[in-house]
Amino acid sequence: MSSALNVVALVGSPTPSANSRTLLLVRHLLEALRQRVNIGIELVELAPIARSLGQSLQRSEAEPQVERALATIESADLLVAAVPVYRGSYPGLFKHLVDFIGLDALVDTPVLLAATGGSERHALVIDHQLRPLFSFLQAHTLPIGVYATPADFDEERISSVALQARIQLAAERAVGHLSPTALHAPLRRIA
């Protein structure tokens, strides 16, 4: 049996919520991935580390819990990055956390992007905000992102058939980018 791939799910909501739609979306994405490939899952939530993260101006000042979160993110074979949309973009503390990720840490790492927002008008946050952010880190952002609105949920379950289908498609396509031999290729540098 092959070893499990390390899937890290980064939930970028700065406020804790037991009924977070972003966290619920992530759980459905992880389950869809688990149905297709042998994975180990590590969940990194922004909310528990938000205050200590906000007090750090650089990574060297980060408290141990923030450093552990960063090391977990940097160890991903596949990163699932999901954020709630605030004022047309991802939360500022989410960006602050991503700013501390090592510049070479996510090179060629597949990243499945997801977001939740109050309406369909924020759906392009994946392509206009998240994709460039992770492209700067030279991560391999997967072509299928997943976006959800409150209308897609019925309390603690996803009620939208279209969203359920999108989750399945995203997981199916993500698995195609998970090649154990390609995951750990040495990084080639220029100059």
Rank of each mutant, 00 (worst) to 15 (best):
L70A: 06
L70W: 09
A62K: 03
V175T: 15
I126Q: 05
T181G: 00
E74A: 11
R59W: 11
R34D: 02
A69D: 00
S179T: 10
H28Q: 09
V66F: 02
N19L: 12
A165T: 05
S75V: 04
H122D: 07
P110K: 02
N19C: 02
L23R: 11
D99T: 06
Q35I: 01
A162R: 14
S13L: 08
I101C: 09
T15V: 07
V161D: 08
E61Q: 14
A185R: 09
A18C: 11
F100C: 09
P91W: 05
E61G: 13
P48A: 15
A185G: 03
G54H: 08
A139E: 00
A4Y: 06
R59V: 11
R68Y: 04
R21I: 00
S135I: 00
A9Y: 12
L29E: 10
A115M: 01
V85H: 01
E42D: 08
T72W: 04
P91S: 13
V44E: 05
R189A: 12
E172F: 04
L29F: 03
V80A: 12
A162I: 12
N19Q: 14
S2M: 12
G12Y: 14
H140A: 14
H96W: 10
Y147E: 01
A191W: 11
L57P: 00
A69R: 01
P48F: 01
L46S: 13
Y86C: 02
E61I: 09
T141C: 12
P64R: 06
Q138T: 04
I167V: 13
V85A: 03
L25K: 08
L169E: 15
L79R: 13
P64D: 08
P186H: 05
A165R: 04
L142F: 00
L5G: 03
Q35H: 09
H140T: 14
V83I: 08
L137R: 14
E67K: 02
R36G: 11
S2V: 13
D154I: 05
D104K: 08
A191S: 15
A81I: 03
P64Q: 07
A9T: 09
L33Y: 07
R87P: 00
A4T: 13
S56E: 09
I101L: 11
V161N: 07
S119K: 04
A174T: 14
L130E: 11
S52Q: 15
E155A: 15
L53N: 06
Q65F: 01
R121T: 10
F100D: 04
L10P: 05
L24D: 05
L30M: 07
E67P: 01
V80P: 03
T22N: 12
A123N: 05
S135C: 03
S20M: 10
T181I: 00
Q164G: 15
L79Q: 14
V161H: 09
V161F: 02
L103C: 07
Q55I: 01
A151H: 04
V44T: 11
S56F: 06
